[in-house]
Simulated assay, not measured.
Amino acid sequence: MKVSAQYAEEHFADILNAASTGEEVEIALPGKPALFLAPRPGQQKNTPSDRPRRELLYAGEGLIQPPTEEEWLAMDKAFTDEILNGAIFPAKPA
């Protein structure tokens, strides 16, 4: 698994869990060499079927619901109204 330093900081427990089940984790640091977190040499790696099925990439899957078409249209109408009638382009004094 390859993750950013920010992701590793925010999901440290998940990173440790992945490494403890035998997965090698590469943590990319901006402007620096990557760090690697891996099981000890000689430690038996768990096979994919032994590891939990929860993948970090899909950990939040199903938690975010995209807006319906009606909600998109309502947001578009509200946004257009704000642009045309709001403080972004106030009416010019006569």
Rank of each mutant, 00 (worst) to 15 (best):
78 A>N: 14
20 S>P: 01
80 T>P: 01
20 S>Q: 10
10 E>D: 15
39 P>W: 00
29 L>S: 02
7 Y>F: 15
51 R>C: 11
29 L>M: 08
82 E>T: 14
11 H>K: 11
64 I>K: 02
47 T>H: 06
79 F>V: 11
6 Q>G: 05
54 R>G: 09
1 M>G: 05
31 G>Y: 03
26 E>V: 06
82 E>K: 10
24 E>K: 02
80 T>Q: 09
22 G>W: 00
17 N>G: 07
80 T>A: 13
5 A>V: 04
9 E>I: 07
3 V>M: 01
84 L>D: 14
56 L>R: 02
2 K>Y: 05
33 P>C: 03
48 P>M: 06
3 V>T: 03
71 E>W: 05
54 R>N: 13
91 A>C: 06
16 L>N: 04
61 E>D: 12
12 F>M: 10
30 P>I: 02
47 T>S: 13
76 D>W: 07
90 P>R: 04
74 A>Q: 14
57 L>T: 09
56 L>C: 08
2 K>Q: 13
28 A>S: 12
13 A>K: 11
17 N>F: 04
48 P>I: 04
84 L>Q: 15
74 A>K: 12
42 G>N: 09
38 A>G: 05
72 W>T: 02
13 A>C: 09
72 W>G: 00
5 A>R: 01
42 G>K: 01
30 P>F: 03
44 Q>G: 11
15 I>W: 00
25 V>R: 00
14 D>P: 00
36 F>R: 03
33 P>L: 10
1 M>C: 11
33 P>Y: 02
94 A>G: 05
85 N>V: 12
51 R>Y: 05
75 M>H: 08
78 A>Q: 15
